[in-house]
Design a protein around this nucleic acid. Structure first.
Length: 394
DNA sequence: GATGCCGGGGG
DNA sequence: CCCCCGGCATC
């Protein structure tokens, strides 16, 4: 364990294989949990605590992690400095890629608020969102200002501006007119008006910048939405679980409990702890990500989850999947493969490669069921194309 | 038979 | 790149 922990500590700054990207993330956004996760993934013992702290604040992040993991060696410190330098360098050099992450910090990410959703305006939503985002208390004054300013900023393209939201709730944001695309990446609800923009958003922010393979994946992480649809469908069309799916991933909570923002946001002990990190870790592919981790709310269910990570990673059984459905071999496989750093999977593996195991039918209602064949146009793109449903992933 | 979706293909 | 659909596994 010690070893692991120390490693986690290092993560704070230095990133192993990730290189600049990762670093920049950390630097820019303290709360950016992703980078952290990446690292963690590599090792078996995941420290949720670290993650949580990360979400708290920039500073706290680094602090807590260090405190938490006092094992850092002197060398690591040195490394930190070096890394920091690198980060700075990279930041100055490639604004495009880096900037997005920065924005991410902002909680609710205005994405929703962003230009198009003017309607929701200032009501509870936003305020609430921000609060929820609490984890990232205050990146920096400038940034904050900027972000807030963006809320009103209307026509500008928010593509990069509003990066992914940290908050799941964000997805509830209503969106706009038809022809809009919403990012389905867990925790992100970004809505863009252009497909290309959305793809870029996904590729850059979620898939890690642009790896070759990621190109095809973008499709699965966004969906086309229409205003009417928006309100009902995505967020809760399948009240039963549309949100649940995501939630499960995040394990925690609330991710999408539309109804209770406050609660959800306010970190319950649980929420803070593992959840967010969990889903992020496994988000390589929706399919993979969600399935295994099913957390679900029913704490009571004793079901046993076999999704074991390689190193016995998740020491914490988090929450056993409520669904009794046992994890299929395929899922486990996916898990293993997805567990490693995202970057790894991305570059090195054909990812979905050829796991020809089909996942069997999930319980979640898919677009076809929810909307019916008649309203095929309301299905998510994936469903329309007879691909794995992205709106109601299992 | 209905569904879900992989794999492949057309424009 | 967008969109469809054959075909197969599952329910």
């Amino acid at each position: 364990m010690a070893a692991v922990r120390s490693r986690a500590g290092l993560d704070t700054i230095p990133m192993g294989t990730e290189g600049q990207d990762g670093l920049s993330y950390m630097q820019c956004c303290g709360q950016e949990g992703v980078s952290m996760q990446k690292k963690m993934n590599s090792g078996p013992g995941i420290e949720w605590s670290a993650d949580v702290s990360a979400q708290q604040t920039n500073l706290s992040f680094s602090h807590s992690s260090r405190v938490d993991l006092p094992y850092r060696s002197p060398e690591s410190v040195e490394m930190d400095e070096i890394m920091a330098a690198m980060v700075l360098t990279s930041l100055s050099c490639s604004p495009v890629v880096q900037s997005p992450p920065q924005r991410d910090l902002l909680p609710g990410d205005m994405e929703c608020c962003g230009g198009e959703l003017s309607d929701s305006g200032s009501s509870g939503y936003w305020s609430w969102d921000h609060g929820s985002v609490s984890p990232a208390p205050s990146p920096s004054v400038t940034e904050m200002d900027r972000s807030s300013g963006q809320l009103t900023d209307e026509g500008l393209h928010m593509e990069l501006d509003q990066a992914a939201c940290e908050e799941p709730e964000a997805r509830r944001c209503k969106s706009l007119s038809r022809g809009a695309y919403r990012c389905l990446w867990p925790g992100c609800g970004k809505v863009l008006t252009s497909r290309v923009g959305m793809k870029r958003h996904i590729r850059i922010l979620h898939l890690g910048g642009g790896s070759e393979q990621s190109h095809r994946e973008e499709d699965f992480y966004y969906t086309e939405i229409s205003s009417e649809d928006e309100e009902t469908a995505p967020p809760s069309p399948a009240p039963s679980f549309s949100s649940g799916a995501w939630t499960s991933c995040s394990s925690t909570q609330s991710q999408s409990t539309p109804g209770h923002q406050d609660t959800s946001v306010q970190s319950t002990p649980l929420s803070q702890s593992a959840p967010s990190s969990v889903w992020q870790i496994h988000t390589e592919h929706l399919y993979q990500a969600c399935a295994p981790i099913q957390v679900t709310v029913s704490p009571g269910s004793p079901t046993f989850c076999t999704w074991s990570l390689p190193g016995g990673v998740q020491q914490k059984p988090q929450i056993p999947p409520s669904r009794s459905r046992s994890v299929s071999v395929g899922e486990q496989w996916l898990q293993r493969n997805s567990t490693p750093t995202r970057s790894q999977t991305m570059s090195a593996s054909p990812s979905r490669g050829h796991c020809s195991f089909r996942k069997g039918r999930g319980e979640a209602k898919k677009c076809r069921k929810v909307y019916g064949v008649e309203r095929r146009d309301q299905w998510c793109t994936a469903c329309r194309w007879k691909k794995a449903c992205q709106r109601f992933p299992d």
